[in-house]
Nucleic acid binder design. Sequence first.
DNA 1: ACCATTTGACCGGG
DNA 2: CCCGGTCAAATGGT
Length: 338
Amino acid sequence: MDSNSNNTIKRKLVDQLVQGYEFATRLQLLLSHQHSNHSTDQTRIVSGSGSVPGDLDPVDELLAKILGSFHKTISVLDSSDTVADLSVPIAVEGSRNASCGDDSAAPASCNGGDSVDSRKRLGVSKGKRGCYTRKKRSHTWTVEARRIDADRYAWRKYGQKEILNTKFPRSYFRCTHKPTQGCKATKHVQKQEQCPEMFLITYIGHHTCNANDQTRAKTEPFDHKIMDSDNTILAETIAQGHVNVEVQEQEKNISSVTVAGAGMVKEEENNNGDQNKDYCEGSSTDGDLSLVWQDALMFDDHQHHQNPYYHGKTSTIAQQFSFIDNDQLSSLFDSYCA
DNA sequence: ACCATTTGACCGGG
DNA sequence: CCCGGTCAAATGGT
């Protein structure tokens, strides 16, 4: 194929799509803002990546569809030299095989299926620890933010590590919905040395869970701009808090720019006791079921002490925006810069 | 009692 | 072998 002309066309298409997507997103935000004036307590869906819970009103639904279309189209364009069919989900390359690490039965090989329920004492069943298949590389991108809950997803911390030559430990989070939906998204967060109030948040993979739809962002009027020079995207959101997040493309990816207005403590709520069971259906029905956020100020210097996490109640809620699914945009920019 | 976090062990890539 | 990433028992909070 003539890769040159191909690229040009692709580029133009992508250009248009990105624009369209952005407009749609803005529209959505505007509308949602209006909405929020009416119904104050409901969180709204933001980027409907296709699946729309039946709870939405027509406008939301329509917007979700529009966004979904852009999303899919972009992803198709993006993911392809070979045009795939539109049913291609959000899943993009990185997460295909290599990422089997989590959702597929990867660990099984280690466990040998002995899912020991009874907790054994340390030392007895050491063998299983750290047993996993390492992901090769899914999409990653890094965000610099003042708040670590700079996104609208619910995360659960699963580890923390001292990193060589760094003052602050790195914390590892995975999507809360991993057990229930097999969502592969993870992130790690590290306090910046030079600027301790800033966190470097690296996202790995994208969310495949849909539970967040209901609880996603509460949209607010905002204004963002994207600059795709140098593989660096700068987004500014003017929400209620001054936020300024810088997203750096790393390894070809990016773009969800998320901002945390004022919130910092998120808490996962187990509305009905077992989040592990099947809450996910609830996401569409249980009104709020909000993913409660749990990230916290754990990175404060005293994290080793007693309650680095604030468990009580979520006092403030992070606000953020995403214009497009990270993977899509990312590779999209990738093709731009290429 | 349940659940999220902590923390040390383990694994695999470089 | 080192180091980053993940697992899972233990711990602590609610």
